[in-house]
């Protein structure tokens, strides 16, 4: 994929060229939105909004990392969604168990290729991490998602978050520390992961 040529075509209004870029980046953009918002449907909406907004403002892209530019768009879409949620709070449609409590891992999220034990472990890990991410301030969450989940370097994160490099370093360090503190509460739920980490650092 010749990214630069596709961007040039998209800047001339070629929607097909932009759709090729979408197919290449949609997983990254969706996952970023998912980890920032913590909800599949909201993440899908934010992703779609981000791509629409990106196409409309594609001429404002002046080179550099296209991924960072896209991440900035999706971050803005997530912030808009969070603001909307604050104005109109909604109740999640998670199914209830027989006891009337909310089910943590709905059946429709199950991956059929995993054994029940693996699935349970993966679900627990994912839910624990997502829970801790949700407890972070949104600015911290954005930085840590882009740096640690998307593997972007500090400069790209600074472009995407539209803040100075020093602020990125500071937010990332504090976010990681807070996450670690939060995840310590799930140590019994996630023994294997922590054991591996302890062994590797010993």
């Amino acid at each position: 994929m010749n990214e630069l040529a596709l961007i040039n075509d998209a800047q001339k209004g070629d929607l097909d060229a932009f759709n090729t870029l979408i197919l290449h980046y949609q997983d990254s953009v969706y996952n970023t939105a998912l980890r920032i918002l913590g909800d599949d449907d909201l993440a899908a909406d934010a992703t779609q909004d981000a791509f629409i907004s990106a196409f409309k403002s594609i001429n404002s892209f002046r080179g550099g990392s296209f991924k960072a530019w896209l991440m900035r768009t999706v971050t803005n879409a997530c912030y808009d969604e969070i603001r909307r949620q604050k104005r109109r709070p909604t109740t999640p449609l998670e199914p209830d168990t027989d006891d009337g409590e909310e089910m943590d891992s709905p059946r429709w999220l199950a991956d059929p290729s995993m054994t029940p034990d693996q699935k349970a472990e993966a679900d627990e890990l994912e839910h624990a991490i997502q829970h801790c991410l949700n407890n972070l301030p949104v600015d911290f969450k954005t930085v840590v998602v882009m740096a640690d989940l998307q593997g972007m370097d500090y400069t790209e994160v600074a472009v995407a978050a539209h803040v100075p490099l020093g602020t990125i370093k500071s937010r990332l360090a504090r976010a990681r520390l807070r996450l670690r503190e939060c995840l310590q509460g799930f140590e019994e739920l996630l023994p294997s992961v922590f054991r591996l980490e302890e062994e590797s650092t010993a």
């Binding site: 991490i129 670690r180 995840l183």
Partner: peptide, 13 residues
């Protein structure tokens, strides 16, 4: 601790 947090995040599917 920081390394642990980072590696946990990277394990997210």
């Amino acid at each position: 601790d920081l390394r642990s947090a980072r590696s946990m995040l990277r394990q997210l599917p």
